[in-house]
Design a protein around this nucleic acid. Structure first.
Length: 154
DNA sequence: GCCAACGTTGGC
DNA sequence: GCCAACGTTGGC
């Protein structure tokens, strides 16, 4: 069964345009250091799942495009690298704490779908994104929600 | 840059 | 296993 996800990224760090310019338009989604998000990445993100690409801390915050899972959960080795921003002393190679996946660029929306528009759309009221107090950087969404946002952005 | 809300840490 | 302190997230 295919799943649908929303991935947050700060465009100043990594935007949809960065993704589209990657070699083969594929990147690894590293640096997730939250257990709930980790569980989704490690256990539930499957090859072929669709990912809504969302710009957080942006002006305006918005869904900006679509990507796809091309490699399922594997060890995030940046956690072992003391030079890396996401280094974590507690993650051991014998028993890694953190995982990542690979995603591939699918499309950039013709127009961004802002958080404001999402909040105003009656069909999108149940999204994790608009639930008060949720800061998850990896969140599931339903096929209907995904398709509605793609429709708005096309 | 502010700050509320949340997750994590660590002392007890 | 409680909970205060701290760090981070992310909209504004």
């Amino acid at each position: 069964m295919m799943n649908y996800w929303l991935f947050k990224s700060e465009p100043s760090t990594f935007s949809i345009d960065h993704l589209s310019k990657c070699f083969n338009q594929i990147t690894y989604w590293d640096g997730v250091r939250n257990f709930q998000a980790r569980n989704y990445l490690r256990d539930q993100c499957k090859k072929g799942d669709m990912v809504l690409f969302y710009h957080s801390n942006a002006d305006p915050p918005a869904a900006v495009g679509v990507s796809m899972v091309v490699k399922e959960g594997y060890v995030d080795s940046t956690a072992f690298d003391p030079q890396d921003k996401h280094f974590d002393t507690k993650s051991k190679k014998e028993k890694p704490t953190w995982y990542m996946i690979d995603i591939k660029f699918v499309m950039k929306f013709r127009r961004e779908v802002s958080l404001d528009e999402i909040k105003k759309n009656a069909k999108l009221q149940k999204m994790v994104l608009v639930r008060p107090g949720t800061r998850l950087s990896i969140q599931p969404l339903t096929r209907e929600e995904f398709e509605e946002i793609v429709r708005m952005g096309k």
